[in-house]
Write a protein that binds this DNA or RNA. Sequence first.
DNA 1: AGATTCTTTGCGAAAATCTCGCACGGATTT
DNA 2: AAATCCGTGCGAGATTTTCGCAAAGAATCT
Lengths: 160, 160
Amino acid sequence: MFIRRLLQRRLGYWTLAELDKFDYRLLELLQENSRLTGNELSAKVGLSSAACLRRVQRLRETGVIERDVAIVSPKVFGKKMMVIVLLTMERDRPDRYMLMREEFGRMPEVVQCHHVTGAHDFVLRIQVSDMEEYSAFVDRVFHEPYIKRYESLAVLGSLK
Amino acid sequence: MFIRRLLQRRLGYWTLAELDKFDYRLLELLQENSRLTGNELSAKVGLSSAACLRRVQRLRETGVIERDVAIVSPKVFGKKMMVIVLLTMERDRPDRYMLMREEFGRMPEVVQCHHVTGAHDFVLRIQVSDMEEYSAFVDRVFHEPYIKRYESLAVLGSLK
DNA sequence: AGATTCTTTGCGAAAATCTCGCACGGATTT
DNA sequence: AAATCCGTGCGAGATTTTCGCAAAGAATCT
């Protein structure tokens, strides 16, 4: 177990080798439910409560656990409609890519944004309340000269 | 505020009308960081710590907050590669849709699965460690008679 | 309007949970 | 073999959450 600290100190961040089976088990559990208490973790992992919490604490500090979030039922925000958009940009404006990403990051409708290879450039996941809102969004965002084409896929149902 | 409990009792679950601005603010905050303490929430929301926690407790009980999860850096699990797949199925096998969804649900590589309208039928988000693993996944899953076409978009970078 | 009922709030005590120092034991280095 | 470096469990102390209670606000009823 000596490796842990050593590598952490030298590299300043974690690499795979430093996590043992306990860490993986903890991550697995917390990924499913981050509100498990020290005692609950202890029972499932086989370490004392304190040991579990210390490990979790370090996983957080070192960025292995990036953050903890509450998953809110989408219905609540009335954003019942989800759309996946395949976006193709004009090839002559590569400088636009970074700007686009930043802009997408600030738009509340954009739940996810992936920059991809292949026939398209971006895959966006959009969450809106209805078609009207989506339509407005499209007009506002996608009718730009450097956007060549966009394809909207309305989501009928999702898993995970 | 009387509406809250009333509807809750009658319907057994929450509807939009029952959430006030405080609830929305709390949800907004917890969606970003679910580890905020009562005092921190109190300061940002303008209610007492106890009131905040009581509300959050209820949001959880009633399913408005579905669950809390830790977000683990994908690098940690060695799943460094993300691929988005646009899947088109043969039109004559609508019965396959449900089965597919269930199967995707059980595959650990499939992080997300959306059933969509339009030119494609499914949009999958796949997380694997390398091209080799992805290749194996494709061979195993996509080479089925009822799958007409699939398009893989490798993710270069993501937001959110 | 006024009385009644139901709900939420803030406060503060009690319970639960987390953090931290400490001594011990196993592993690695010298 | 001695010294050093973790990680562990234990337990005290700190922090956080839960809960009961009285008071205040709304909604409902007369």
